[in-house]
Write a protein that binds this DNA or RNA. Structure first.
Length: 377
DNA sequence: AAGCCGGGGAT
DNA sequence: ATCCCAGGCTT
């Protein structure tokens, strides 16, 4: 169910149809501000396109503080394109474990192979070619092109959307193609063609430090005199988003099936949450309850475990796992009895408990995995 | 165009 | 509890 936010009628205030600031004025004010504030981040020390690429992917929808340790570990293990391309996907995912949005890791790995195969192991400098790489969209292509190669391509991320929509009064919803098109046009008009990298860095820093999502620091903002949102008292309303996200509940039931110091594991292959990561045999249900018949039918069908009928187990509930648009309720069923597989399962396999550390798991399962690894057999 | 993908921190 | 984070892919 989509619900328009209550201030949806702000569109009656027409946004500026022309620039309230010319590009040169905007750039001058921006650089003046930037000179005093500039952030110093590990990946800003050079223009190595590989390092810029990795950092940009890691920082997609991810805060600097959260991504930095992952970046440092990633660069240490995979210092260049070739080392990344030569790795097993499982190891790349293991390095990504806990960071979320795992398609980033899978696409990063695929793109490394792409670069080796198609571009002799060198990240292309052409914007169009950069954009052809897996996991690289408009934002990341512009970032790499400008930061690494000096290409004149304006970055448009959450920061830029916020800054431009407020200063220049873009009142059309920024989560629609029309709104984002306006932002893109504006961004490409404003960019410093002499030093696009510096400009892109500065405007994102400005959004991250001064023009904050909540309680922006308008008092000493260099743009306050010409800012549309400030003048019209619309700081809280811009950027305007038309869509609201709905939080859905999902119920996961995990079965800990052990034998001889090993535990059954499977890899999530479907186009769904945590694709590519490992987990224990599981059933998803519509609600928190799962009847015993369903459990034992699953064990029998999946593993041919006849002896499991009526086998006692201990059911525990994990802490509610909260995501942006999901609320995951997870239950763990631990069987005392040792099972032997009567028929081979295509999707699950036994892994010695002490080897669980080699597999990437969703954060949700970390506590269970830790527990299993430390059991003495 | 809409829905989906994770986890964490700020408010 | 809600929003948002150096977005992009699939349907």
């Amino acid at each position: 169910m989509k619900i328009l936010k209550k201030w949806a009628n702000i569109s009656i205030f027409a946004g500026t149809k022309y620039l309230s600031l010319h590009s040169s004025q905007f750039i001058e004010l921006l650089y003046q501000w930037h000179a005093a504030i500039e952030r110093h981040l590990p990946w800003k020390v050079d223009t190595n396109p590989y390092k810029i690429w990795i950092s940009e992917i890691i920082l997609q929808q991810t805060r600097v503080e959260q991504g930095t340790p992952y970046y440092l570990r990633f660069i240490e293990r995979f210092p260049d394109v070739n080392s990344l391309a030569a790795a097993e996907e499982q190891e790349v995912l293991k390095l990504w474990e806990g960071l979320g949005y795992y398609s980033r890791a899978r696409n990063l790995h695929a793109a490394a192979k792409q670069i080796v195969d198609q571009f002799s192991g060198e990240i292309p400098s052409d914007h169009r070619l950069i954009l052809s790489l897996k996991g690289i969209g408009p934002y990341t292509a512009a970032a790499i092109a400008s930061f690494a190669f000096g290409g004149v391509h304006a970055v448009v991320d959450g920061n830029v959307i916020r800054v431009l929509s407020r200063i220049f009064g873009i009142t059309e919803a920024v989560d629609t193609t029309g709104g984002i098109k306006q932002i893109n046009q504006l961004a490409s008009q404003l960019i410093d063609r002499q030093d696009p990298g510096r400009y892109n860095q500065a405007i994102m820093d400005f959004g991250a430090i001064q023009c904050l999502p909540k309680n922006p620091i308008c008092l000493d903002c260099p743009f306050v005199k010409s800012c549309f949102a400030y003048k019209n008292d619309m700081i809280e309303q811009l950027p305007f988003k038309a869509k609201t996200l709905t939080k859905k509940s999902r119920f996961f039931h995990y079965f800990i099936i052990e034998n001889a110091g090993a535990v059954l594991l499977g890899r999530r292959e479907k186009q769904d949450i945590w694709k590519g990561l490992f987990e224990f045999p599981m059933i998803e249900s519509q609600g928190p309850d799962l009847d015993k018949t369903t459990i034992f039918m699953f064990l029998k069908d999946e593993f041919g475990i006849n002896t499991a009928i009526g086998a006692p187990y201990i059911k525990t509930e994990l802490k509610k796992h909260l995501l942006t648009h999901r609320e995951i309720h997870a239950f763990v069923y631990k069987f005392e009895e040792k099972f032997e597989l009567n028929s081979k399962s295509g999707t699950y396999f036994f892994v010695p408990n002490e080897n669980l550390g080699n597999f990437a798991f969703p954060k949700l399962l970390h506590s269970i995995v830790q527990e299993l690894m430390h059991i003495q057999h």
